[in-house]
Structure formats: C-alpha cells, structure tokens
Design a protein around this nucleic acid. Structure first.
Lengths: 129, 129
DNA sequence: ATAGATGCAAAGGGTTTGCACTTGA
DNA sequence: TCAAGTGCAAACCCTTTGCATCTAT
C-alpha cells in the first residue's frame, strides 16, 4: 500500500525546476527543451511520465486549451485566464476575471466554472512581424 | 484564377446532409458514420477533406472545446459562446458576450478573438439529480 | 541487490497527404 | 476528355508503452 517510492534523479529535478522557473504554462516539448540544459540526454518519454506523476500528486494542473496542445502549470494559483499567441503558440497567464461572466448563461443553467481564452499576437511576435 | 470547380458527388451530398440533419455539432467520425449510410465506401479522408473545404467556404464552423475532439457545426450564427453540461455533456449555445472581455489582456497583447465556455448543470439534469 | 527511473524505438489515436483510379461535367 | 474528387495506405504529430539498461537507495 503506501505511496510509491520516489527517487531523486537529475531528470526529475530538472523537470520540476523548469516549471518552478517558468512564468507561464509549458508544453511537454517546452519542458524538454528547458530541462535538457541541466539533464543531458533527457528524453521526451521521461518528461511525459514525470508530468503524469506530478499531475497525480496534484503538483501540476493541466490546461487543455482549444486549438493548442495541452500545457501544464503549477497548481494552487489564484483563478486566472490565459492568452495564446497565434504566432508562437506560447501561453501567457492573465490576471483577473471579468465580472459577471457566469451571468451569460440564463437562469436555467447552474454555472460551476468557466474557461476563457484570448487569442492574438504577443508583444514579441508583434515586433517581429 | 477563379474559384475551384465544385462537382456534385454523392459523398459530398451525404456529408452536407449529415450536418444539415444534425441538431448538434458533429465530429469527423460521427459524420463518417452518418454519411456512410447513403454513400457506401465513403472514407474518412474524404470526410476530412470535405470538412476542410466547407470550412474554407464558410459553410462550417469548428467548435474546439477543451478536453474533447473538434466538432463542426453549420456557420451563420452570430458570435456566441457555449455552455457545457457536466452531466449530459450536451453543448448549449448562449447569446451575448461580456463587454470588454478582451481588455483582460494587457496592452502588450493584441487580442483578435476569444473563446468562453461555461460549465455546470443544465436545467434538465438539475431536475433529474 | 533490486525495484524505480530512464532512453529508445515502436505503437497508438486522430488528422493529413501522395498517388493512381474514378467520375462528373 | 480530363481535372476534380475519391479510397487506400503511408505519413505525421503528439502521447503512451514495451523493454533492456541504468541507478538511487
């Protein structure tokens, strides 16, 4: 019974560090790129396996945005929404939430949560275009 | 250079008919199943190709909800959002759109569009529970 | 020593594409 | 006739899995 032993490996540390240092949600591929800098030879399968276990531990939350691959971020943040850049596909966190957003649904619906995603061009890509 | 000729084929008719008769958005696989009844031998590739061309013609719109495969519905509706019932998974259309929703993103982002999905329980399921 | 962790490559889903054949106009 | 359209299978992209090897403990 009991929790599976979790060994301390450099791959695991590098993956967690990638999320801890990121200021935005990361895709598995983005995690791989960042983590490979400190864990040579790291494979994508290990990234997926670790993301899965970090999800199960509740350390990570998945963001399944329309039109983009699933990205992951550390759990426990305040309610917020996201901006997706159409050019570089990076996902940014936005703070705040429009008031009364749940009122859009009529009285016949009981709203429990919502997802809001803004799409467009980020500052960096706007400069490049 | 002109618009490509569009021939009338039984496959194309069957695919369009599937959408015309459906009372809800359909996935490519669901379209295949329905359309094969009137177009024997219809292949999934043809479904994808026709969906793509119907999208380009503006006849179809994609509904890319988080956590589900992309489904398609006939276009022509005004800008709207959706409510997804957690119990029955049906998707309902909502009318209207919160003012200033795009202002959530700071000045460094150029917002071009947005997606808003409300989740909860629909009236029917609320009664049943 | 030994079970957990990893890397690689192959396998899986869903979607797209190359190609030769079919068919509408 | 002959290019648009189609079916099939292979290719792709992202994610998962099998397996032999490696390694933290």
């Amino acid at each position: 019974m009991s929790v599976k032993d979790q060994r301390r490996t450099k791959q695991r540390s590098a993956i967690r560090a990638a999320f801890e240092r990121a200021d935005r949600p990361l895709s598995p591929l983005q995690v791989l790129e960042v983590a490979q800098k400190s864990a040579k030879g790291l494979g994508i399968a290990t990234v997926y396996r670790n993301i899965k276990s970090l999800m199960e531990k509740g350390w990570l939350s998945a963001l399944d945005l329309p039109g983009a691959v699933t990205v992951y971020e550390r759990s426990g943040k305040a309610h917020h929404h996201h901006f997706v850049c159409d050019q570089c596909t990076r996902v940014f966190e936005l703070s705040g939430c429009p008031a009364r957003i749940d009122h859009l649904a009529g009285r016949q619906f009981r709203v429990r949560r919502h997802e809001l995603v803004l799409y467009g061009t980020c500052a960096e890509c706007a400069t490049r275009l």
